[in-house]
Structure formats: C-alpha cells, structure tokens
Design a protein around this nucleic acid. Structure first.
Lengths: 138, 138
DNA sequence: CAGGATCCTAAACGATACTG
DNA sequence: CAGTATCGTTTAGGATCCTG
C-alpha cells in the first residue's frame, strides 16, 4: 500500500513512536525512559544547577552534595543524549569541559525546578504532616 | 539564653529544618527524600493517575502498566506518609480501599503532570535529536 | 480485593584507582 | 581536570505465596 501522503524525511515518525506517543501509562512508552533521566536522583539536581548557568564538571560535583564522579558523569551523559545538556570540551591540558542547558533543556529544567521549589517551599508542612502520623519507616 | 521572641507552638521549626530549608543541593536536606518519592519511577505515574480522580488499588495497578503489587503498595505508602495521598479503607469483605489526592497532593501532582506532559509533547523532538548522535547506549 | 511476607535478581550506586 | 574502569555494596524491583 503506497503512501498517499509522502512524508518529508525530516519529520519521519516510526509506527511505534506514533502508537506510543502521548501515553506514559503504557509500559513501553519511550517517554518513561526520558522521564527517568530527568527525574533521576541526580538528574533533577543537575538540571536545576545548570539553570543557574554554565558549569564545569567539578563545579557541579561541588555544588551537588553527595554525588559521586561516576553518577555525575553518567547523569550528564543521559541528559546530553536526550538533548537537554550541551557539552563543550576545550582541547587544552589540563582538560576543560563546560556543561550548559540547550533550549530544550531549559524548558524541562524550568518544570523540574517548579516541582523542586514547591517541595522546598512546602517542606515544613509536609514534615509536620508526617509527624502527626503513626510511626512509619523510611 | 532565654528566648526573646516566644514562638507559637504551631509554627515550631526545628534547628535542622531551619538549616536545611531551601537547599536541595545540601546532601542531608529532607526535601531530597520527598523529591525521591514524588519523582520515583512509579510515584510520578501514581500522582498523575490520581489527578484523574479516586482509584482503587487494582484500578491503579491496571492503569499503570508494568507496576508490581509490591511497588505500587510501597509507592502509595510513601505518598500517603508524605501527605499527598489519602487512603480510605471500607471495612467490608472483600476489602475495598480508595486512594485519592489530598489538597497538598493535588499541588505536587499538577507540577509532576506539567513535567510529564511536556516530555510527552516533545518526545518526537527528543527522539529525533538522539537519532542524529553517535550511538550511545541505554 | 488489598495487601503483607518472603525470596530472589538486576540495577543503581559509591569508593577507589588509573589515564589522557 | 575530567573523566573511565573496576569492584563491592545497597537498593529497587519483581514473582510468588499467603491471609483477613
């Protein structure tokens, strides 16, 4: 069955993309993977940090308390691959690499920050609510 | 050193709360834990699902593709403890339990949904961006 | 039906050491 | 400095069985 409406190459969308689009609840929806990167333990913090401007690797490491080299590197790679983070390496010695948000990254980061900010702003309320309950763990 | 400004009991805030307030970047900030629950793999989906109204346990399990009983139960407990989810159990047999969002939960859920919606809406763009890169994994 | 208890695997995570 | 590689630990997560 030939294509009645020829699709321009640059807007190609596969069948599975079309099927899965718009449904995070579906088990195999690719958006779940992206969501995982963005909402991962360190992903959130990296995005919010970069919203404050360009950072070098060690700047991020210092700023984000508790992150290991390995996880920071991995998180940055996820986010770079998803098109949210731009990595610029200057060919000097010692190495100099700068991380920043792409336009796409700024959009997600803003939404992530909105969430993080709300939680910070309501922390006292949340903790107080927890205090009035029968002791549960972790 | 006596307190010059007596603090009303209902606005009590511990020292650690005051110290940690407003700083997700700090390693021991309690907001990180809440953030973990909310942005956890299933937490996101539970919140968005409940934004659509009250659900029973098995309704949620059916709606959220791929979640196991154990993780759904655990996620609901986290969110209940954080004051985002209200659990109402009717003392009948067979058991009947309904989950819904508290007012506090509706506020987080909206922000979580904003993020999820953005990702879904820009999925095609993101996937296309990934396609044009040198192959990376996972 | 709504989970709790148990057992198990896979993945995340962290510490350290090493390299261009 | 900015990582990669390796290894060991911890946690997430899933399957199954069981009970009120």
């Amino acid at each position: 069955m030939p294509n009645a409406h020829p699709v321009p190459a640059e807007s190609a969308e596969t069948l599975s993309e079309r099927l899965m689009r718009g449904n995070v609840f579906a088990e195999l929806c690719p958006s779940r993977e992206v969501l995982q990167h963005v909402t991962s333990r360190w992903g959130v913090l990296v995005l919010v940090a970069l919203l404050g401007g360009t950072h070098r690797f060690s700047d991020l490491r210092r700023k984000i308390g508790g992150v290991s080299e390995k996880m920071l590197a991995q998180t940055l790679q996820w986010l770079e691959r998803d098109g949210f983070v731009l990595r610029v390496a200057y060919p000097v010695v010692p190495p100099h690499v700068e991380y920043s948000l792409t336009p796409l990254g700024q959009e997600v980061a803003q939404r992530v920050q909105a969430l993080a900010d709300w939680i910070e702003g309501n922390l006292a309320t949340i903790l107080r609510a927890r205090g009035t309950q029968t002791e549960a763990k972790h």
